[in-house]
């Protein structure tokens, strides 16, 4: 009877939590997102694709960075992509960073260093708002800051459509089937062939979107690979330790029964 009670509780808990997850999605009023396959999504062994990260960074740099800041990422973090120290120094030096004040009290521009964070396209939020109507969000955490972030951003980039008949859009507004409310202030940012890849990777909107999502997923959770690797070890240790303790418990309790 005791066992059946426990089973009942576990069942009730799992059934209700599954139900909760479903309705949580419904409650947000978002459109159904198409589930894409992501290497970093694998529950136990997810990893980032280094080549995709490098390509995604290129997409960010050439397209997104024109409007979107990523102020939590520093050049030195790019070591995660397999870049060497020299390569990172080289990449950083291509940027101009405002520093200062110097001894005369003036701000000055210098070339970037690995310890610098990505420079933002606008000096402040009001400037970003003035240039775009609404301030483009910082992308450092965007994948974590949206429900089903990776599929959402991928869907958004591919989700531009003509507005349905009768819908009038103001200047600077666009129709996107994935955006909550469907009206978005960002024009479709990608088009086929707009970014030149160095290898044979197809230069399509779909591929660009996949690569930028990989890059943004990394930016949101740069610790993910290590986290999952440690996690496997922790689980193995705990399972073995628990098993051992179960045997000890059995042995100690034997005379009682």
């Amino acid at each position: 009877m005791r066992k059946s009670l426990l089973t009942l509780m576990v069942l009730a808990a799992s059934v209700s939590s599954a139900g909760l997850a479903q309705t949580a999605m419904a409650a947000t009023g978002e459109v159904h997102l198409e589930e894409q396959e992501w290497g970093f999504d694998d529950f136990f062994t997810g990893t980032y694709d280094r080549a995709a990260l490098q390509r995604g960074y290129k997409v960010y740099r050439e397209v997104c960075a024109a409007c979107h800041s990523m102020k939590r990422i520093a050049f030195r973090h790019l070591a995660d992509f397999g870049y060497s120290e020299a390569q990172i120094k080289n990449i950083a030096s291509e940027y101009s960073i405002e520093d200062g004040p110097n001894e005369d009290g003036d701000m000055f521009d210098r070339s970037g260093r690995p310890s610098d964070y990505f420079p933002s396209p606008y000096p402040n939020e009001n400037a970003a708002k003035a240039a775009n109507g609404v301030a483009p969000p910082d992308l450092s955490l965007i994948i974590k800051a949206r429900h089903d972030g990776a599929n959402y951003v991928y869907g958004l980039l591919a989700g531009y459509e003509e507005p349905p008949e009768g819908k009038e859009l103001a200047v600077g507004q666009y129709w996107n089937k994935v955006m909550p409310g469907h009206v978005i202030a960002m024009a479709a940012p990608l088009s086929d062939g707009m970014i030149a890849y160095e290898d044979e990777t197809p230069e399509t909107v779909d591929q660009y979107s996949r690569d930028i999502v990989e890059f943004l997923a990394w930016a949101a959770e740069p610790e993910m690979e290590r986290r999952k690797r440690w996690g496997i070890n922790v689980l193995i240790f705990l399972a073995a330790f628990a098993g051992l303790m179960y045997c000890v418990k059995k042995k100690i309790w034997k005379p009682v029964y």
Binding site: G231, L235, L238, A239, M245, K249
Partner: peptide, 17 residues
């Protein structure tokens, strides 16, 4: 100890994954 380890195992599943 045994019960705690089983609980922590599930807890760790959330922390890491």
């Amino acid at each position: 100890t045994f019960g705690l380890l089983v609980f922590v195992l599930i807890y760790a599943l959330f922390i890491f994954f």
